[in-house]
Amino acid sequence: MTDTGVTASSSRSLGRETRHLLWTVTPGALWILLFLVLPSVYLMSVAFMSSGPYGLPQMPLSLDAFERLAGFGFLGWSPGNLYTLLRSLWQTLVSTALVVVIAYPVAYYITTCRAKWRPLLLLAVVVPSWTNQVIRSFGWMNLLAPGTPLSDLAASLGLISPHMGLYPSNFAVTLGLVYNFLPFMVLPLYSAFERLDVAQVEAAQDLYANPLRTFRHAIFPQTLPGLLAGIVLVAIPAFGMYVVSELLGGGKGMMLGNLVASQFAGAANWPLGAAGAILMLLATFLGLFVMRRLGKRLGGGEQVVI
């Protein structure tokens, strides 16, 4: 939008337009430079340095951090970090899938309700996220701890061994992730459902598509942009999650975010932490790239914009 505005008028008074552009763009550009570009460059360079006393980065340049991230340490190779990475990917995958499975019908249901109830129902979806993540995680701790009705129920069903709680566990982390990110899926899906062209659905039925095929060919493609937007909004923060896995996961529930954080704090190895952060960034970009390709293939091109 800005682009066309600028190009259209640039032929008339280039100098003035350029000055205006500079005035308006410079503050934002400076902000991004100071608080995004420079720290990122610094972080990346830290990853290629050696770890000095107290874990602070120092010369000479080395790839030690990446070797240690890959699991090679003083005692030979250990799979710990690899497990953490795989656990992060798995938790992201499972929680995102669960969020989709829950949010899709919820979003659809809200659109079928009377217009006056819809804002209220959406509010009900959003309200929990007004409370701090930490506090909500503590809430789950109390619900899932050993001896609570939920844990007892799970134990009596044989899902967990008696006197063990549902917390701390990988299950608790998945639950926490799903709970935290549900609104981020419901909202874009709701807006996709709200804009749904019902005539297309009826056209599919009219053209001999059974209910399943009507969904596949007329409903799903229309909600795909919302779905992909929701997946991006859920999967990226879930992959980098720190709070939920820290509080609900215990020692065995560690995710990549916790690994990175621990290297900057307790374990004190800044280069290793930075290398972890780069890995996270790369994984995220790869994910976005895949989503984009997927959106183009399923959704017929321009309608999916990430």
Partner: peptide, 13 residues
């Protein structure tokens, strides 16, 4: 029975 819809209802994808 087939219908020609007022909004045409073509599948854009």
């Amino acid at each position: 029975v087939n219908t020609v819809f007022q909004s045409y209802a073509l599948f854009p994808h």
